[in-house]
Amino acid sequence: MKILAIETSTEACSVALVHGEEILARSELAPRRHGELVLPMADSLLAEAGMSRQALEGIAVGRGPGAFTGVRLAISLAQGMAMALDLPVVTVSSLQALAMEEDAGSDDILAVIDARMGEVYAAAYRRGADGLPESLSDEWVGPPASLTVPPGGPWSVVGTGWATYAAQLRERIGSVAAHDGACYPQARNVALLALPAFRAGKGVSAEHALPVYLRDKVALTLAEQGKH
Rank of each mutant, 00 (worst) to 15 (best):
E7L: 12
T8C: 03
T10E: 02
E11Q: 13
E11N: 09
V18I: 10
E22I: 08
E22M: 07
S27I: 15
A30P: 00
R33T: 09
R33H: 13
A42L: 08
A42S: 11
D43A: 09
S44F: 00
M51T: 09
A55Q: 15
A60I: 02
G64D: 02
P65M: 01
F68I: 15
V71E: 01
L77C: 10
Q79K: 14
Q79P: 06
M83F: 12
A84Q: 13
A84P: 01
L85M: 13
T91N: 03
D103A: 15
S106K: 12
D108A: 03
D108P: 02
R116H: 10
G118T: 14
Y121R: 04
A124M: 03
Y125I: 14
R126L: 06
G128S: 13
D130Q: 13
S135E: 14
S135N: 06
S135I: 10
L136P: 08
P143A: 15
A145D: 10
T148K: 13
P150Y: 06
P151W: 02
G152P: 12
G153T: 07
W155F: 04
S156A: 02
T160L: 02
T164R: 15
A167H: 12
R172N: 10
G174D: 04
S175E: 15
A177P: 12
A178T: 14
A178M: 10
P185T: 08
R188C: 05
A191S: 12
A194R: 08
L195K: 08
R199M: 11
R199G: 02
A206R: 04
H208Y: 01
L210S: 01
P211Q: 00
P211V: 00
A219K: 08
T221R: 06
Q225I: 13
